[in-house]
């Protein structure tokens, strides 16, 4: 991408977002939306152009739609005056994000995203909103702090300087890119490699291959390691069949493990410690949530000391006193 254009597009987006943050109505809102979307579109077009991709690819179209949707929903999240709507728009962001995940081949993460975020986290938000939100007037925004965006200029400035910086990194991504074929070969090589750690799967695939080849699928034993072909599309493994003959089984790309399998394998082999830590985090979060959710009674410092069996200090807790008053 050409940075000046990139920055210009970011700036347009920024202006659009800034205008939207000021809660315009009617045509102004429409104009701001169009401005923001135009900036976004320009940004995306630049991104696609910069990738150097030729020809039409339906995946790109889907991805573009997803990105646009995610962005629009995100903007709504921060511009809407009603937190409930914000949460719902956030669900939309999550869904659009999941689409993008899917397009990029992260199927497992796409669905877990929806399950965890939309299913669990956002529901929590909804509960809290219901607990904490004051009853809104009919149709109108509820409270002042929801209606007005504070210091939108500073916020937009910060945000879009960051955006421009990040986007210029994105624009730079291409120089480090390798030929697509090589990338695929390497990826497949990695996947084959990972497959070596899954003997059951290899066994299953070889058995199926032998059966398909009309050989005796039973009683074979490996006669060497899995040898990946140069382009990574196939892998060959010599086996000694039950009849003592040697056979070279050829596994094709379709035989590679699916996303969730690989992911699981990666998780337990490369990041076992992190996994444990994540568990601890979740545990602590649970404990914390329990503690926090315990019924709190407003007690002054002295009362609390008394409750804890300490001597009273006769200190007036101004804050609480004020609250009580």
């Amino acid at each position: 991408m050409i940075p000046p254009l990139l920055y210009a597009a970011s700036a347009i987006c920024a202006v659009g977002l800034f205008l939207l943050l000021r809660q315009p109505t009617g045509k102004a809102r429409l104009g701001a939306t169009i401005l923001g979307l135009a900036g976004l579109a320009w940004l995306l077009v630049q991104g696609v152009q910069a990738s150097g991709a030729l020809g039409f690819d339906p995946r790109v179209a889907i991805m573009s739609l997803a990105v646009a949707m995610a962005t629009a929903a995100a903007v709504r999240v921060i511009t809407t005056t009603r937190p409930v709507f914000a949460a719902l728009y956030f669900v939309l962001v999550v869904v659009a994000g999941a689409v993008a995940y899917l397009v990029m081949g992260a199927e497992f993460m796409a669905f877990s995203l929806i399950i965890v975020y939309a299913g669990a986290i956002l529901i929590t938000y909804m509960f809290v909103l219901m607990l904490a939100q004051q009853a809104p007037d009919a149709g109108g925004p509820s409270v002042a702090y929801d209606r007005i965006a504070r210091e939108p200029a500073a916020a937009v400035l910060c945000g879009f300087v960051l955006l421009a910086a990040l986007a210029s990194v994105v624009g730079d991504a291409r120089t480090t890119k390798q030929p697509a074929a090589m990338v695929e070969a390497r990826a497949n090589a990695a996947a084959w490699n990972r497959m070596r750690g899954m003997p059951e799967l290899v066994q299953e695939r070889i058995t199926a291959e032998l059966a398909a080849a009309g050989k005796d699928p039973m009683g074979w034993s490996p006669a060497g390691g899995l040898e990946v072909a140069q382009d990574g599309r196939t892998a060959m493994m010599p086996v000694t069949l039950a009849d003592g003959t040697r056979h070279e089984t050829v596994l094709k790309a379709a035989d590679l493990p699916v996303n969730s399998t690989s992911l699981g394998w990666e998780l337990v082999t490369s990041y076992p410690g992190s996994l444990e830590l994540a568990g601890v985090i979740l545990l602590m979060a649970m404990l914390g949530a329990v503690v926090l959710a315990r019924r709190q009674t407003d007690m002054a410092e002295d009362d609390r000391r008394a409750a804890a069996g300490l001597s009273r200090m006769n200190v007036e807790d101004a804050d609480l006193a004020g609250d009580r008053a």
Binding site: R150, A154, A155, C158, G159, V161, L162, A165, L166
Partner: peptide, 18 residues
């Protein structure tokens, strides 16, 4: 207000990044 500090932080990060 939290955002005040956050603006400084974000702005700083943005500037450093830039």
């Amino acid at each position: 207000v939290v955002q005040g500090y956050a603006v400084t932080m974000a702005g700083g990060v943005a500037l450093v990044a830039a």
